[in-house]
Nucleic acid binder design. Structure first.
Lengths: 146, 146
DNA sequence: GCGTAATTGAAAATAATTATCAATTATCTC
DNA sequence: GAGATAATTGATAATTATTTTCAATTACGC
């Protein structure tokens, strides 16, 4: 089940948030791409639909969406300022191409065992994890070989 | 085998970098703590030993050390601006306490299988991963219950 | 000790994000 | 549909984090 801009709009309402055209513009941008985008890039694109939107509002909307778990932050070894739509609603992780920055999701997550073990060893109460894989996508791999 | 400030100093030389007192001050700071530190915090501490060190140099030294894989960046859901000594030289991951930000290492890493599987499914050439666990350490857990 | 290239600190520049606040507006109630 | 109201907005300023520039300094091989 894919999260469309409209579905998210509904979720926003349910949660008591107003559905402003600005928010909708950001939602459309997020839903329209499969790549991670920086706040700045989202701003640029949202302005196409709504030239009067402010960068600040983009930040605020992203914060809101992230709080509601509708978009997620993408981390990378050199920083972590990308956002993207949380496409599968369920738990998943990202595989990021070091070449073209394409992000692929994978649901595979065999960490429960690991978490239990680490939890036993450290007496931590483990509440979550961040897992991302890095590599080269088929295309970039080909290019790299040339 | 623990990485001490002196050992790292040796590594720096081997690689052709000069061993300045400023770099040594940063190394000592990093070696002296088990926690993650922000560049700012590292700067403050380094100044104790070398009051004339500049924040810029701290940034530069951290970049250098990170490039040589001697310290590592710590990511967190809300940002990623911490650095800490790469204590076990070998592959390992971090368990970060959401309460006090303490970082514990764990070497446990059962991701090879996962990586292979994802690699097969996506045709990516997987070169690395980022895995961090979050939770509450025993102390913070107690506090939280109160 | 000397020469040289790397390194440094200060200051300015840039980038990224957040706070302030008056004006606007989505939605609820009638 | 109009009106009330609290949330939301954009502009601006403020903050914070990081990088660049550049002349002065310094570690280290000789």
């Amino acid at each position: 089940m894919k999260l469309t801009a409209n579905k998210i709009a509904g979720i926003l309402r349910e949660q008591g948030y107003k559905l402003t055209p600005q928010r909708h513009a950001v939602l459309k941008v997020m839903a329209a791409t499969h790549d991670q985008l920086t706040p700045e890039a989202i701003y640029e694109r949202a302005r196409a639909a709504r030239p009067d939107i402010g960068l600040v509002t983009v930040y605020r909307t992203l914060d809101l969406l992230a709080k509601l778990d509708l978009v997620c932050r993408i981390h990378a070894p050199d920083g972590c300022h990308g956002y993207m739509m949380r496409r599968p609603v369920d738990h998943h992780h990202h595989l990021v191409c070091s070449g073209c920055r394409t992000v692929v999701d994978f649901a595979e997550c065999s960490l429960s065992e690991l978490e239990e073990k680490v939890s036993r060893e450290t007496s931590f109460d483990i509440t979550g994890h961040l897992l991302e894989l890095y590599g080269l996508c088929p295309e970039c791999r080909t290019t790299a070989v040339d």
